[in-house]
């Protein structure tokens, strides 16, 4: 039993490597520095466990009986305690402690006291249960706001400031970097970098209420050129609808409740309590990266957000007919 688990576990670990949200699947220097140390300590500790379990099992063969016992002044065994209990663990633990310190020093996760040296490129603000993202790079007219999907240039370290508007959250993209909490009144900083272009998923990692489970996260790393195109696109106001359906949809959006909470830049919709929708059509997911962004899900989300994310702060909105809903979704989808 015990041995089987010990033998099996590295295999299980390996099988986990390939998954999208695994710390072994390191795709950025942060995670890539942690993974080997983690790997070493896990393997070593599996070996230690195995040795210890064997040490526990061997003496079972030496049986005694309840009728007799050793003399009470019998000594011995001190060496075990001194060597196994004190010296070996002391050496092993000191080694790992130092390795941890060295790693930490080279590791760009910071508290507010270090903010002086860090000028954030991106400000991420946690909300129950979505992410507000401010791009702070460059002069004021180069800044913009988006939500839930964070784009970064690949191969380039980006500094993020992490805050929260309401309760505690934590920013965690396991394949890129360790996590750090987002605590109201306590801004934290993190340097994040992806080696290659690609999509990196993550998750809010501090319990923040009923929809903590659906507070997912997507970081998209792009080549320098693609990233530049993306920022250009993001700087544009919401796309002006051209097709009649989309024009009708815009009317639904603006006259309905949507605009009280959501913003679409360039339109009168200037709500600030919900994700910015200026470029919602370009995002891969909705509901804080929890559901695919396609027609079916969008229609369902608008009318039944509460079925997808029970308790989330967007109500079910059912006061329009089927045509209006289709128009609305068409409008949202062309907001690219």
């Amino acid at each position: 039993m015990m041995r089987r688990i010990a033998l099996l576990s590295p295999l299980l670990l390996l099988s986990g490597c390939a998954t999208e949200q695994s710390i072994w699947n390191a795709r950025g220097p942060g995670a890539a520095r942690i993974a080997p140390l983690m790997w070493w300590i896990v393997v070593l500790f599996l070996v230690v466990t195995l040795i210890m379990w064997i040490l526990l099992v061997i003496p079972i063969r030496r049986r005694g009986s309840l009728d007799e016992h050793a003399p009470i002044d019998i000594g011995g065994g001190q060496g075990w305690v001194a060597l196994g209990g004190l010296l070996i663990p002391l050496a092993v633990l000191t080694a790992f402690f130092v390795a941890g310190l060295i790693l930490m020093e080279r590791f760009p996760i910071h508290d507010p006291n270090n903010s002086a040296v860090l000028k954030p490129d991106i400000l991420v603000i946690g909300h129950q249960w979505w992410w507000e993202v401010h791009y702070l790079d460059g002069p004021p007219d180069q800044r913009f706001v988006t939500a839930n999907e964070i784009h970064i240039p690949a191969g380039q370290a980006v500094t993020m400031e992490l805050e929260s508007e309401d309760v505690n959250h934590a920013f965690w993209v396991p394949t890129l970097q360790g996590k750090i909490d987002m605590i109201p009144g306590h801004p934290n900083f993190m340097r994040i970098e992806a080696n290659q272009p690609g999509d990196y998923v993550g998750q809010c990692a501090e319990y923040c209420g009923v929809q903590h489970a659906h507070m997912r996260l997507l970081v998209v790393a792009q080549s320098a050129a693609a990233y530049k195109d993306w920022t250009e696109q993001m700087l544009q106001p919401g796309h002006t609808p051209t097709t009649p359906e989309a024009i009708a949809g815009e009317q639904v959006f603006l006259t309905g409740k949507c605009s009280t909470c959501h913003e679409v830049r360039g339109t009168p919709a200037r709500g600030h309590v919900a994700p910015d929708l200026t470029h919602i059509g370009s995002r891969q997911y909705i509901g804080a990266d929890s559901f695919p962004n396609n027609t079916a899900y969008l229609e369902a989300w608008v009318t039944h957000a509460q079925s997808f994310k029970p308790g989330c702060l967007m109500p079910n909105i059912t006061d329009f007919n089927g045509v209006q809903l289709r128009d609305l979704v068409t409008y949202l989808q062309q907001l690219r």
């Binding site: 061997i58 003496p59 030496r62 005694g64 009986s65 019998i74 065994g77």
Partner: peptide, 13 residues
Amino acid sequence: FAWVATLWKGRLV
């Protein structure tokens, strides 16, 4: 390790 040593130096029931 005190427990493990006790096991090794004892006769188990």
